[in-house]
């Protein structure tokens, strides 16, 4: 059955017709042209499809599209400022080498953002735990964890400011 849903996508009110059996990843990639979220497994095992829904990092391949009706969705495409200024996490991944092939990167950054939004001063163990659902075959995770830690090391006020600035969905 098809129906219409309304949600906030990267800050913009969005209204689309969907089928009941679509998942969010399919909607984003195939219907809305947002290919930043990747499909690494399609069954909740790799985290490459991670997006943020109402502040929580979710595997969009397991998330029914109907369920985002009335919610806010942030994808990697919506993380940088409108003028192209990178989010602190994006900058940090670039400068600390948290990227190799880049396939896991969008999901990794969004999982890290959801963590920092909830806990601006995570420990290394918190970071490792928060990223445990995001597989990376290239980096061995060290520079990814360092990329997140480098953002945490700044004052917490700074972090909150950055997060607010880029979470321009409200």
């Amino acid at each position: 059955m098809s129906r219409e849903i309304k949600f906030v996508l990267n800050g913009a009110q969005t209204c689309v017709a969907i089928e009941d059996d679509w998942n969010l990843l399919y909607l984003l990639r195939e219907k809305l042209g947002l290919t930043g979220a990747k499909e690494g497994c399609g069954r909740g095992e790799c985290g490459a499809c991670t997006v943020i829904v109402d502040g929580l990092a979710v595997n969009s391949c397991l998330y029914f599209a109907v369920e985002i009706d009335g919610k806010e969705v942030l994808t990697i495409e919506g993380l940088a400022g409108a003028d192209g200024t990178l989010h602190a996490l994006q900058k940090s991944f670039v400068s600390n080498g948290g990227i190799q092939c880049g396939f896991c990167t969008p999901g990794m950054i969004l999982s890290a953002k959801a963590l920092l939004d909830e806990n601006p001063q995570p420990t290394e163990a918190d970071i490792k735990q928060a990223l445990a659902g995001n597989l990376c075959r290239c980096t061995g995770y060290v520079q990814i964890i360092e990329s997140v830690e480098a953002v945490v090391d700044k004052s917490s006020g700074d972090i909150n400011a950055v997060v607010r600035e880029t979470g321009d969905s409200d």
């Binding site: 290919t35 979220a37 990697i76 495409e77 990178l86 080498g97 990227i99 396939f103 990167t105 969008p106």
Partner: peptide, 17 residues
């Protein structure tokens, strides 16, 4: 930092799929 990093953190880098 690698020259290809920016496109990879913004989701603009296109993979085959």
């Amino acid at each position: 930092p690698r020259v290809d990093s920016r496109a990879k953190v913004t989701g603009e880098a296109l993979f085959t799929a």
